[in-house]
Amino acid sequence: MTAPTPHRPRVAVVFGGRSSEHGVSCVTAGSVLAAIDPEKYDVVPVGIATDGRWVLESGDTQRLAISGRELPHVDGERAAVALLRDQGATDLVVADPGSVPEVIGAVDVVFPLLHGPWGEDGTLQGMLEMAGVRYVGAGVLASAVGMDKAYLKVVLRDAGLPVLPGVVVTAREWERDPAGCRDRVAALGYPVFAKPARGGSSFGISKVHDASELDAAIALAQEHDPKVLLEAAAPIGSREVECGVLEAFDGGCDTSVPAEITVTGDHEFYDFEAKYLPEEATRLDIPADVPEATAVRLRELSARAFEAVSCEGLARVDFFVLPDGELVINELNTMPGFTPLSMYPQMWAATGLDYPALVDRLVQLALRRTTGLR
């Protein structure tokens, strides 16, 4: 392990991005920027605009909050930011249009708060690996596997972990043989859920009650990803429970108390509005009201999933508790949301680690990480 840098570490908080979760990422960044200790870290907010432009963003956390039903966004007209690798260090360089670039200084840690493709999926992590920059969270492979729900099922199933059955429909297959795709989905038994394979925040997800709704559901999912996962719905009476995993300083991992999500009102499932808009009817029970043996099993399976995917830093593991008490893993998120309504920080707060301490631990874990292959 490499010791932390002796000076006040410079942390670049990177957010926004090109995915449909751009606004959610900005809200997450606002929460982290408000919590990170400016006396302990030199914090630099870096935004990625929807066109991919990197800019030196505002640290104004109010600007990065949800306003009514409107999500914030990165102002792509701000001064451009680049990473410059020189003599063993990677510097942040800033330049206004037409001005001489200014070197801010070496970056000790990047805190990537991007959700979805082009950020949470290993692409940004790969760039940082090539630049020799430490960063918070999972590496290239774990990020890619966690982002792709279809491959996540393969990895978890191979590790002996329980998952729901599903089939993948690619854009090529749907164009070449739609009837065959419909037959494969029908074999799962309706209802099913149609999901963008590499999406998040419940964008593009719909519940398909019967075959008449399938084509429209696939079309909706394809607006976010040409690769679609069709997944068997959990039985009626199943409960949605989540558990947080956090890397330990000794190389192992710790798990949080589990939490249960109950969606009420007009929502059939935990969709975008239920997740992020405070006026929507969602009840969170932390800790989840489950038998002690079930809570222990949830935490055990969460740690096993974390290790199976080779995660680092943090992850949130989502489960269904079936009516018979059996557990199946729904998803694993390598960069779960950090908004004020997000489950991950709330679970850790209930476990005894408050939000500022959680942010600090993630940065400290990254500072202790070696660069290169691990």
Rank of each mutant, 00 (worst) to 15 (best):
E240M: 13
Q346N: 08
S99I: 04
A308D: 05
A171T: 06
L71G: 05
V169T: 11
V321W: 00
D158M: 11
P196A: 13
V94P: 05
E326W: 00
V107R: 00
L229S: 09
A171V: 10
T339L: 02
G180Q: 08
E129L: 05
V154F: 09
A281G: 02
G132F: 06
K40T: 14
P345R: 10
G59T: 06
F306L: 05
D271T: 06
C26S: 07
F269A: 09
V208E: 01
S19A: 15
G252Q: 03
V192N: 04
F111G: 06
A217H: 08
T264F: 07
T255K: 00
C181W: 00
A34C: 01
Y41H: 07
D37T: 03
L373Q: 11
P101G: 08
E247G: 15
V43L: 12
A349I: 04
A12S: 13
R18F: 02
Y190P: 08
A217V: 08
V192L: 02
A65D: 13
V107N: 01
L161Q: 09
L373C: 06
G199Y: 03
V185Q: 01
D96R: 15
A349P: 00
A150N: 10
E242M: 01
A95K: 01
E312M: 11
S20Q: 04
R316M: 03
P9V: 14
T264R: 15
M130E: 07
I205Y: 01
Q62N: 13
L188A: 13
I104M: 11
G98T: 10
G199I: 11
S310F: 02
G116K: 04
V140C: 10
G265P: 11
S212L: 08
G17L: 11
C311W: 00
D318H: 10
A12N: 04
E102Q: 14
P9H: 13
A82D: 13
F272A: 03
N330L: 14
S302N: 07
S342Q: 10
P101I: 08
M127N: 03
E273F: 04
K195I: 08
Q125Y: 12
E223C: 13
S143V: 13
A95V: 09
A357S: 14
S206I: 07
A234S: 08
L341W: 01
D254H: 12
R374I: 03
I218Q: 00
L332I: 15
G105W: 07
R78L: 15
A187W: 04
